[in-house]
């Protein structure tokens, strides 16, 4: 059992949880993740560690609700517990003084990019960060990213805050302006990471992305998280999660991540229905029936 000491929403549906996990806190390095399981019937899901405080024995994760498990995680608060948290898993980010590093965080990916950005800064790099969200309220970790960046650029899709546009637009500008870039780190939606990879490939700028395939054990035992790197199969849990963006086959990642989409949607629908039924019961005596159509693919 792992206790949640603190929780806060960073944006609608995006929550930070501070979890008591002394062994993990002691060992965590930027780029690593944990796998957690919420209850006896729960699935195992990987989540990047945002930060750790070894003295206090805590780690923090940032979760965006997307499916049932992440929605459940979003409903947890200080005092609640998580049944299993295991880690830190995966290879740590390669940190060195590269020169100028551009760190790109798309949406909740900003939380995953943050620890590496901070480490790059500590290693002496000039860090240019570009983070973004759909609207103003989805721009997260602005303060934290500003602290570890020499330059922080912010975009929103709808222009409700800072510059209107995509994070990749800012990268293009930097390249067009002739800014010398020695390393790009991009973490976020697959389409964003793929766009970054295409943009930097032509310029031959070393680029690293953090991949998020489906995982079970996270220790190299099951092979479910295999990703195609330079035409060859690799396991993201032990060989990654960070890879050379120019060698990643993003289409295979999209295809494999869709493997259980129907089941995931069914899980989420039933979870929401149960939530509603509970709310309804609390308000009246009305009972809700939670049966969703369709089988599992």
């Amino acid at each position: 059992m792992f206790r949640i000491l603190h929780s806060e929403f960073l944006a609608p549906g995006i929550k930070r949880l501070v979890i008591e996990a002394p062994r993990i806190a002691r060992k965590q390095q930027p780029g690593q993740f944990v796998i957690l399981r919420l209850h006896e019937h729960g699935e195992r899901i990987p989540l990047t560690i945002e930060n750790s405080t070894p003295q206090e024995g805590t780690i923090s994760i940032v979760v965006q609700s997307a499916g049932k498990t992440t929605s459940l995680l979003n409903s947890l608060n200080a005092g609640d517990t998580i049944l299993d948290v295991v880690g830190p898993l995966g290879k740590p980010s390669h940190i060195a003084n590269f020169g100028t590093a551009v760190v790109i965080g798309g949406g909740v990916g900003t939380a995953m990019a943050y620890p590496t950005a901070a480490a790059l800064k500590r290693a002496g790099n000039r860090v240019i960060s570009t983070i973004g969200g759909r609207t103003k309220e989805f721009v997260i970790l602005e303060r934290e990213m500003r602290e570890v960046s020499d330059v922080l650029m912010i975009t929103t899709d709808d222009g409700s805050y800072a510059e209107k546009g995509l994070v990749t637009d800012r990268l293009r500008q930097l390249i067009q302006n002739g800014v010398r870039i020695d390393l790009v780190l991009a973490v976020g939606p697959i389409v964003m990471m793929k766009a970054v990879a295409e943009m930097t490939r032509a310029e031959r700028i070393p680029t690293v992305v953090s991949l998020n395939p489906i995982m079970i054990d996270g220790t190299g035992m099951c092979g479910g998280c295999r990703v195609m790197i330079d035409g060859k199969s690799q396991f993201a849990c032990v060989d990654g999660p960070e890879f050379d963006a120019h060698q990643v086959n993003f289409d295979v990642l999209v295809q494999r991540n869709a493997m259980y989409r129907e089941a995931e949607q069914r899980s989420l629908a039933e979870y929401r229905c149960q939530l509603e039924a509970r709310t309804n019961r609390a308000n009246s005596t009305q009972e809700g029936a939670c049966v969703s159509g369709g089988g599992v693919r």
Binding site: E43, R44, I216, A263
Partner: peptide
Amino acid sequence: MHAYEFPAYDEPML
């Protein structure tokens, strides 16, 4: 993971 008992268990399988 008891995936064959989905959705009683959360882990899915084909």
